[in-house]
Nucleic acid binder design. Sequence first.
DNA 1: AATTTCACG
DNA 2: ACGTACGTGAAATTA
Length: 376
Amino acid sequence: MSKELEREAAEIEEQVYALAGETFNLASPKQLGEILFGKLALDPKAKKTKSGQYATGEEVLSKLAGEHEIVRLILSHRQLVKLKSTYVDALPELIAQDTGRIHTTYNQFVTATGRLSSTNPNLQNIPIRTERGREIRKAFVPRDADHVILAADYSQIELRIMASFAEDTSMIEAFKEGQDIHAATAAKIFQVPLEEVESDMRRKAKTANFGIIYGISAFGLAERLSIPRGEAKAIIETYFQQFPTVKAYMDRVIEEAREQEFVSTLLGRKRYLRDINSRNFTMRGFAERNAINTPIQGSAADMIKIAMIKVHRWMEAEGLRSKMILQVHDELVFDAHKEEVELLKQEIPRLMEEAMELKVPLVVEVGTGENWLEAH
DNA sequence: AATTTCACG
DNA sequence: ACGTACGTGAAATTA
C-alpha cells in the first residue's frame, strides 16, 4: 500500500505543479496558500490563520473545489499522504518484537471529560470513513485462523444519555420504539409525519442532534449545513420548541455550572469551568459549551469503563481464551476464539447494555469478521 | 516548540 | 461588533 500511495501521490503532485505553473513544497500550507490565494487568486476574501498565513484546511479547500481543478487534486493528495505517513508507513514500525503485534498505550489521565486516549500508536483514530482508509482498517486481523475480530458498539450513546438527562419524553419514546432517531428528530423539527421525512431533512436533523450535544450555535450549524444563518437559527428554535425539556436541561446545566464552577458526570467526575462566569463572551461561550458537552461525553466514558470491567470479570470467570483488545470511546474490540463467538455475541452486548441504567434503553450492536472492518 | 492539518468518536 | 459546535494524537512544516 505504501508503494501504491507513493506512486499515486507523486502523480497528483506533478499535476498540481503543472496547474500551478511552478513546483513548490505541496506539504507546506504556507507555500500552498501563496499559490492558491496569491498567484491563482482563487478567493479574494481568503481567510488567514492567526500566524498570518492563508488557511488551507479541508473546510477551506472544499468550498473552493468548484473554482479550480487544482483544489480537488490537492485534497486527494492530502488524503493519500496522510494515510501513508500516519498509518501505512508508521504502524509496521511499531510491531513489538516479542509479540509480533502492535500494542497501544491507553492514557487514563489525559482528557478533560474522562475518556481514554491512545498513544504510540493512537489506535482510536484508525481510518474508516473513506474507501482508501477502510483498506487500512482491514489490516487489523485476529491472532490466528482460530480467531475472529468481534466488535461491539453502543448505538447513539450520547444522544441517549442526553435524552435521559433531559427526561425528554418524546425522544425517550423514539428510543423505546427503536426508531431512527435522526428521522424522528427531522419529523419533529420540520413538522411532517415520520413517513414523509426526506433524506435532506434527516441529514439536517442529524447535524442538529450533534450540534445540540456540542452546545450549538446558529453560526456553527449554518457552517456545517452550508445554509444561511437565519435558516439555522430557525432550525434551532424549532428544535427547542419541539424538545422543550432539552432546552430546560441545557439551561439548568449552565446555571449549575455558574453556581459551582464545575460540572459532573453520572459517576461524579468533575470538570472545573473557571471561565463560566467570565465577562469575555468568547471564553464564557467556550465554557458554556463545555458545560453542556462534558456531562454527556463524560458519562458515556464512565459507562463504557463500567462495561469493560464487567466484561473482563465475566470473561475471566468463564476462563475464556478470547481477549478484549481495544476500546474506541463507544466500541469494544475483541480477539475472539471461534468456539466462543456465539457466547460472546450473546453476553457482551448484555453486559454493556447493563453497565448503567438510564431512562432510555441502551442498544449495543455486535459483529464479527476476518478483520476489524468486516466486524462492523 | 508552535502551528497547521487531518485521522477518529 | 464580537466570534463561534465537543473530545483526542500524529505528522510535517515553520519559527
